[in-house]
Amino acid sequence: MADIKGTQLIHEYLRHNKKFPHVFCSGCGHGIVLGSLIRSIHGLGLSKDDVCIVAGIGCSGRLAAYVDFNTVHTCHGRALTFATGIKMAKPGMHVIVVMGDGDSMAIGGNHLIHAARRNIGVTALILNNNIYGMTGGQCSPTTPAGANTQTTPMGQMEQSFDCVELCTAAGANFVARGSVFHVKRLDSMIMEGIKNPGFGVVEIMTPCFTQYGRKNGFKSPVEMFHALKKNVVKRERFDEIPEADRGEKVPSGIFVQKDTPGLEEKFYEMAARCQGGK
């Protein structure tokens, strides 16, 4: 498997009995995230047996079914709790959690902030498409104010969550934001997130054309990718833009990178200390 790359490499990691092409709509970015995740794991040289993918419910939950690692498909919003248990029982396993924005910040919002507070050594990929896609297009905690959705036909009135600031404030060890248009940067962020000890969060901006784009004036998925290309800017460049001109732009890049030991490292250290000090 050493000499192959690109799409051929991705095909090596897929479960081909799961009826490909996958279920995602035409123009959905989730497939790009799946490819990026596979490339990152391959790039780090991890064995398939040493990786565990835990996914919640939603469009992003399907990612776990398609890849040939140890995978768990869990309850809605509770993916991080399952992942915590797996990581505590098997600290050598690289546990990667794939969640959507509603999954992680609405239904599992409490688990997200407490996983960040505990600093458990899992990497969470939050696929932020600004909507609940699979259940019919209800507005989610990250739907921007003013957007039209199935449940807010006259425009969303509430403020939206900023995932990066939420996780930074809760104390996560690694916080980054990428987009499915800037794939090479996304690859390096996921690799850094897996390598970093403690809790890591990578928020990935991905378009949902079927449920979000059509109701908000986009004519095709390609237009949503143009919007990503234009609006997701590097963090350093974003800081230089005067506040009045920022508009819809969002910063991307690595925001927090600390090397505090994770909960499982502290736990096993304490266990060894207690057993040795009998």
């Binding site: 690109g6 799409t7 991705i10 995602f24 497939g31 790009i32 490819g35 248009f181």
Partner: peptide, 9 residues
């Protein structure tokens, strides 16, 4: 890199 369906090689 950007084909969401892994259909291009």
């Amino acid at each position: 890199l950007h084909c969401p369906d892994f259909a291009i090689m």
